[in-house]
Amino acid sequence: MSARLTGKPVLYVIAGALGAALLGAAAMGIFIASGRYDIAAMHPHTQPVRTILKFLQRRSIAFHARNLVAPRFDQPEVIQRGLALYREHCVSCHGAPGEGRQRVGVGLNPNPPPLEQAIERWSDAEIYWTTAFGLKMAGMPSFLLGRTPAEIWAIVAFVRQMNRLSPEEYRRMVSARANPSDTVRVQWIGKTRAEALARVPGDPARGKELLRTFGCRSCHLIPGVPGPGGNVGPPLTRWAERQFISGRLVNMPDALRTWILNPPAIDPHTAMPALGATVAQADDMVAYLYTLGARPRERQQKNRSR
């Protein structure tokens, strides 16, 4: 390198960076103009694009919802109103426990996810903000248009309850709205998964040992429990994150204990037999299974006016 060049290295670095940026912009333009970018909704985004979009979405929602204050909305009438609005506006894309989305919700990219676990990912304010204003580049419409904030909060109130609804309880709620004499059988407000999993009885260390001695491992893959085979039933990996037990019960400690004690009582045709565990033994196994995966936690609700 000549003496002249080494004299002003900073200038050369700046010029080089500017040149690179210009070239970059030009190449990007050429690439876009070439039409090579695959914009088909049917084909998944590549991993880097999805990662960037998700990150952008998460940060933007958190930022814009930061000052929202949720009103009191844990009243049965509000949940009922929310259920009606949810069925009118949301089922078509997001479905509900046991209810599929409709044709308009099929083939969107990104896919509208089921909302049973939305409260495990987002605060109430964030769900409100998303529902009220929608999401650009995602096909999630804004629902505040033509609606009032109170109505959007009612939808959020129902989405909270969805976290603990089995398909059967959801069907009962729906029929109770159509036929008010059914309402007595409906529990409009209940413990969410996050609340139910905050306190799990039983001893995980004992449970781990029992899962081995009861031969659960011969039918299930269970992380941390050694054993053979394990392909008869589903793997129990990340169990704490799973929404349903056998597609019927919501995955909470009481339901899981009931399942382990006597699966055919819940589903007469199931291939999982009752194994003769006592209640205390079942509780210990429950405790171990909930150490697998990330336990659902209430998202921080710093802005709740209760």
């Binding site: 690179a20 070239l23 970059g24 090579r36 970018y37 695959d38 998944p44 590549t46 880097p48």
Partner: peptide
């Protein structure tokens, strides 16, 4: 810059 851009272009193509 060119190497970087070719990489970026690949990112968008599936």
């Amino acid at each position: 810059a060119i190497v970087l851009l070719l990489g970026l272009a690949g990112v968008g193509c599936s």
